[in-house]
Structure formats: structure tokens, C-alpha cells
């Protein structure tokens, strides 16, 4: 909550200006990138990945949440509240806070960039500095390949690279988790697109061995179906 308030205050100058309606309008956008339920490891797994913003062309309040429930249990959940400022033609710099409820409660300061790289790669690169001393980098890339004007194949790749050991989360330094796959969506309208995703999500190296030693599944292939939509 504090994070949301802080980021909202940072973005406030953008919201306070009196508009003339020629390029100074306050806009907003909410993208539910992934919302699906699937069977994995003998249980129903629900997954969400949502982000959005409110603001002008330069200053925005940006928020993001992602998480997963397995059976009745909340497996993982994180919330980010960021101040986002346009720094280059296609890129925003972002600072703010992240708070996780699961697997254990902890908070981070966030610094990063988000935007559109050459060749239309959607790029997110953030560093997270945990208040308990843990530090990680997250990189996410995705790309739209159009089969038709409605059928879009979207390869995507995301990795968490830890710089510190996080025993509570069974994490060792290095590239600890990767998520890669292909999300194929059909744009019924530009705003609503059901999808089928073939994803490979797994812990790597020592982080995988730590999880296995603790009796947890280090991850693997999954087939997910859901709906991508934006408001």
C-alpha cells in the first residue's frame, strides 16, 4: 500500500495539470497479459500477469502484478508500483517498490527500463534490491509474429538472475529461474484474444537442486489456455 501511495505521489505532477485537450490528456491502460488455469503436477494452477498505467506522455504511474495459485494455495504473488518516465523515443525509466506476499513476505526497491527495442522486441529489464539484502535482475523479451492479422504467435523469454543467495526461497546466485515459450493468441478484437501457451518454466543449476532437495518440483513444461485482454 505504501508503495502504491509513494508512486502515486511521484506521478502526481502529471495528474495535476489542467488540460487543453491537445496532447496533454491523461490516459490509462490495463493489460491482462496472461490469465489462465491449467493442470500441472496433478493440481489446478491459476496464473496471472497484469500491468497497467495511468498518466500523460511523459510521466506515468505504472503498476504490475503477477502470481500463481496451486490448488487452494497462493504459491507466489508480487505487486509493483512504479513511477515511469519517458526517457527516449521508445523507452521509459521506472523506479518504485515491489512487494511479495508469497512464497514469503518481502519488499524490494525497483529500478529499470521498459520499452520497445529495435525489431519490435517488447523489453522489460529491472533490478530488485530486497530490503532483506537480496538482489536480483529480471529480463523479459517478447515478440509478435503475425500469421494473419488476427493470429499472432508470440515467443517470450523471461529470466531471474540472482546476485545473492536467498535461502528462504531456495535460491542460489546466478540465473535461477527461466520461463520461455510460445503464446499463440487469436485477436477476436484488438482488445480480446484467447490464447494457448506452450511454456517451459524451470529452476536452473543449484537453485533447481535446492528445490529438489526440499521435495519441491523444479518446474517443467506446461500447456496453458487463457485470455489476453486490455481495457
Amino acid at each position: 500500500m505504501r508503495a502504491v501511495l509513494l508512486a502515486a505521489l511521484l506521478a502526481a505532477p502529471a495528474l495535476a495539470k489542467d488540460g487543453h485537450g491537445h496532447g496533454d490528456a491523461i490516459n490509462n491502460y490495463t493489460l491482462v497479459e496472461e490469465a489462465d488455469i491449467t493442470r500441472f503436477d496433478g493440481k489446478w494452477v491459476a496464473n496471472w500477469e497484469v500491468q497497467g498505467w495511468i498518466g500523460g506522455d511523459v510521466n506515468k504511474f505504472w503498476w504490475r502484478t503477477e502470481g500463481e495459485t496451486k490448488g487452494p494455495r497462493l504459491e507466489q504473488s508480487e505487486f509493483q508500483a512504479l513511477y515511469s518516465r519517458n526517457i527516449a523515443m521508445f523507452f521509459d525509466a521506472q523506479v518504485g517498490l515491489r512487494h511479495d506476499i508469497q512464497p514469503d513476505a518481502r519488499s524490494y526497491a525497483v529500478v529499470g527500463v521498459q520499452g520497445l527495442s529495435p525489431l519490435f522486441f517488447e523489453t522489460e529489464a529491472h533490478a530488485f534490491f530486497g530490503f532483506k539484502g537480496d538482489v536480483l535482475l529480471r529480463l523479459r523479451q517478447s515478440f509478435d509474429l503475425r500469421m494473419t492479422n488476427r493470429l499472432v504467435v508470440q515467443p517470450l523469454f523471461e529470466t531471474d538472475i540472482y546476485l545473492t543467495r536467498v535461502p528462504e526461497r531456495l535460491i542460489a546466485p546466478g540465473p535461477a529461474i527461466i520461463e520461455a515459450g510460445v503464446l499463440t493468441r487469436y485477436e477476436i478484437t484488438r482488445r480480446v484474444a484467447p490464447y494457448v501457451a506452450v511454456m517451459f518454466e524451470r529452476r536452473l543449476g543449484e537453485s533447481a537442486r535446492l528445490a529438489q532437495a526440499a521435495g519441491e518440483n523444479p518446474g517443467g513444461w506446461s500447456l496453458r489456455t487463457g485470455v489476453r485482454f486490455w481495457l
Binding site: H20, H22, G23, D24, D57, N86, F90
Partner: peptide, 12 residues
């Protein structure tokens, strides 16, 4: 980003 300008400036 759908920003259009004259001489790099939005209106005003």
C-alpha cells in the same frame, strides 16, 4: 506512442 508534434513540441 501516438505523440505528434510541430518542431518537437506538443501544443502549448
Amino acid at each position: 506512442r501516438y505523440i505528434w508534434t510541430l518542431n518537437g513540441h506538443k501544443f502549448g
